[in-house]
Design a protein around this nucleic acid. Sequence first.
DNA 1: CCAGACGTTGTT
DNA 2: GTCTGG
DNA 3: CCAGACGTTGTT
DNA 4: GTCTGG
Length: 243
Amino acid sequence: MCGRFVSTNQPDQIANYFGADAAVESLGENFNVAPTHDIYGVVQGADGTNRVEAFHWGLIPSWAKDRKIASKMINARSETLAEKNSFKGLFKKKRLLIPMDGFYEWKPGAADGPLNTKGKPLKQPMFIHRVDDEPLAVAGLWTAWKDPEAAENPEASDAGDQWLHSATIVTTAANETMSQIHNRMPVFVPRSRWAEWLDRSNDDIDDLSTLFVPTDDGSLTMHPVSTDVNNVRNNDPHLVTPL
DNA sequence: CCAGACGTTGTT
DNA sequence: GTCTGG
DNA sequence: CCAGACGTTGTT
DNA sequence: GTCTGG
């Protein structure tokens, strides 16, 4: 799956890479982006041009009473996307690309290996990134949510947009490279299909679903990193340094 | 009709 | 919002 | 994803 | 064990 990643590029760098406009303030470099944090997303605007915007990681569906649900909606299985109530409408109309430098997966520890303080096998975090060190373009879905409580407090809602934009990362089965450490991985959208994925008027779901078939083009590599990454407050370049 | 759910992962 | 279950 | 909390009452 | 928060 994908539950922690790295984002160090600035909005204008991301905009340049995706052929988009930067419509957001910098979120800063983050070597330990965790669910509920703000992340960048590339979406197609109403005028047809692509924009880099900020999203809350963890989908908060439009019907949610509060934002607690977000931490349960950090991923969406590609296999069932088109059938799930929470996702099917978004799959048609609210697709985005989530840029990242790379992401972390925790390789399960061997039963006869070192144990943690609770007596469970110690997991080894790994950093996965492109061989050429270009950003990954990960498939995601987004939506807008208006806090029902905030709507009843007009005094606090003067400042700008009351709609919270949130996003979830689409996952698929691990490819050959990733299956060394984990059975799931995010869906990567190749450059040749970015436009198709972002196109708001495209509702050819069957065709888009071909992106969900795990492929292995040898573009990914990985290395073990410090367990300091377990602490979400630890945001330091050394987190991606190979052990 | 109304009520209630709506999610993923990993581990056992 | 939209679907399923009762 | 991992870490950390997990509760209520009454009083200030 | 299970949920919430980051």
